[in-house]
Design a binder for these strands. Structure first.
Length: 451
RNA sequence: GGCGACGUGGCCGAGUGGUUAGGCGCGGGUCUGCAAAACCCGUUACACCGGUUCGAUUCCGGUCGUCGCCUCCA
């Protein structure tokens, strides 16, 4: 029985999908305004693992991850770069795509872009106006927070608390400072689309409301995103969607924790950012994934070079076992334990613990000459569900030495060893080490592994 | 100020009312020409102060500290 933490419920609750055997998921993807960083990667990996696990558990999963490609920040960034909004959004979208692929994140079933759903957005906005939940002002459309009684139910805030003592730049055209834009009239030089309220563009939250309903329908199962989106973004999505439909928008809300640098949140605004691309290149996507998965997805995690190295070492240990053992029919007890920890709000840290317990058990068995295939099979299964399998690392480079060349050098070294020319043997070993190949001399000969 | 999360051993990071998380590191050992790997043994902690309890790291209250959201943000 799967139990998940839902921000809306403020606790761990049993997961009951809208439709038997199916899961519909919508995850807030990037606003394509700048380079993807390690924080974006964490969110993508967190929901990728959740998705993979649900699918492995037998659910038919429909996974949607949007791209917000029109928004104030993108307009500003494009202006600064002297590019068109469209060009910048496309470029950054590609960077995100590359990074996600590098992290072994599976492609969404749908990846809708805001600018391709203007009609749906306009239709939804009209409904909000008809229902008295939104109003127009000089070509803008605002959502009237006070018109919706349930406003604040996700984030646990009420309008009165929000209002008191806040230094919001009060926009005189709004009826209430808390009201937010659903549609913004175009300023000179900005991209625009025709609408009943004049030329303009969507506000920030409306695209998710419109696209989630289009691809998943009302009352879909899981809505995910970073904890920093909880308010106001997700709160406003709910307000718009439930205000318009009068029914549940999403059943469960999941939020991943932030990535910190030196204890503080990684964020573009503070300059505390580590871009994904160089990390993927230097350490590979699997190492980063390992770093992410060692902590629970809801906890904040620290990122540093030292931690990345630690994760890499842990991954190496796992890989050494995987290269050593031949997988067979998975050990059922191990898989049951895996289900148990994952069914408890996707406990990847416990899954990692289990994985390394299996590695130790498997190694011991193999050392004793036993059959490690069942354990190895379980390890392979778990590794695949966590996305730590080799298929998830397309970035694995072409080796400098071919297998045949390595074999030849190993044979040459062993010849030297048998003649007790150990200096020569060690020289070859060093050479191979430089090429990223490590050797292990055992009773049955020498094994070699690429690092 | 409001809402929320958290303070665990050298580091990272789970978890639990009473029994070894796990990883990395470190020390010792087995094995080995040496090394590496693997295995074995050791390194054993829960911010502080009260309370509840036979017993609290785990529950309750308080103190201190850290962080997130309240403005764009994965």
């Amino acid at each position: 029985m799967l139990k998940i933490y839902s921000t809306l419920h403020r606790g761990i609750v049993p997961f009951e999908p809208r439709d038997e055997g199916k899961v519909s998921m919508y995850v807030c993807g990037p606003t394509v305004q700048s380079e993807p960083h390690v924080g974006h990667g964490r969110s993508a990996v967190a929901f990728d693992v959740i998705r993979r696990y649900l699918a492995w558990s037998g659910y038919d999963v429909t996974f949607v991850r949007n791209i917000t490609d029109i928004e104030d920040k993108i307009i500003a960034a494009a202006a600064e770069a002297g590019e068109s909004v469209e060009t910048l959004a496309r470029e950054m979208g590609e960077r995100f795509e590359d990074a996600f692929v590098g992290l072994g994140v599976l492609s969404p079933d749908f990846e809708p872009e805001a600018t391709k759903h203007i009609d749906e957005i306009i239709t939804l906005t009209e409904v909000l106006i008809d229902r008295g939940l939104a109003y127009t002002r000089d070509g803008d459309v605002y959502f009237s927070v006070r018109a919706l009684e349930s406003y604040g139910k996700l984030s646990g805030r009420n309008p009165d608390e929000l209002r008191s003592g806040y230094r919001i730049e009060v926009d005189e055209s709004k009826e209430d400072p808390l009201d937010f834009a659903v549609w913004k009239s175009a300023k000179p030089g900005e991209p625009w689309w025709e609408s009943p309220w004049g030329p303009g563009r969507p506000g920030w939250h409306i695209e998710c409301s419109a696209m989630a309903e289009k691809y998943l329908g009302r009352g879909f199962d899981i809505h995910g995103g970073g904890s920093d989106l909880l308010f106001p973004h997700h709160e406003n999505e709910i307000a718009q969607s439930e205000g318009a439909s009068g029914t549940t928008f999403a059943r469960y809300w999941l939020h991943n924790g932030m990535v910190n640098l030196g204890g503080e949140k990684m964020a573009k605004s503070t300059g505390l950012v580590v871009d994904l691309a160089p990390i993927l290149k230097s350490h590979g996507g699997r190492a980063l994934r390992m770093l992410y998965l060692r902590a629970h997805y809801r906890s904040p995690i620290e990122f540093s070079d030292v931690l990345l190295v630690e994760a890499t070492e842990a991954l190496d240990r796992l890989d050494r076992f995987r290269q050593r053992a031949t997988p067979g029919v998975p050990d059922e007890m191990a898989l049951d334990r895996f289900r148990e920890v994952m069914d408890n709000d996707f406990g990847t840290p416990q899954a990692m613990s289990l994985l390394f317990d299996l590695v130790r058990d498997g190694n011991r068995l193999l050392d004793e000459g036993g059959d490690g295939s069942a354990i190895a099979g379980a390890v392979e299964t778990i590794v695949a569900v966590l996305g730590l399998d080799d298929a998830s690392d397309p970035a694995a480079g072409e080796p400098a030495l071919t297998d045949a060349e390595v074999d030849a050098l190993v044979a040459e070294r062993n010849q030297a060893r048998s003649e007790r020319r150990f200096d020569d043997a060690d020289a070859i070993r060093d050479e191979l080490d430089d090429q990223g190949v490590s050797l292990e001399d055992g009773p049955n000969g020498t094994r070699w592994l690429r690092k």
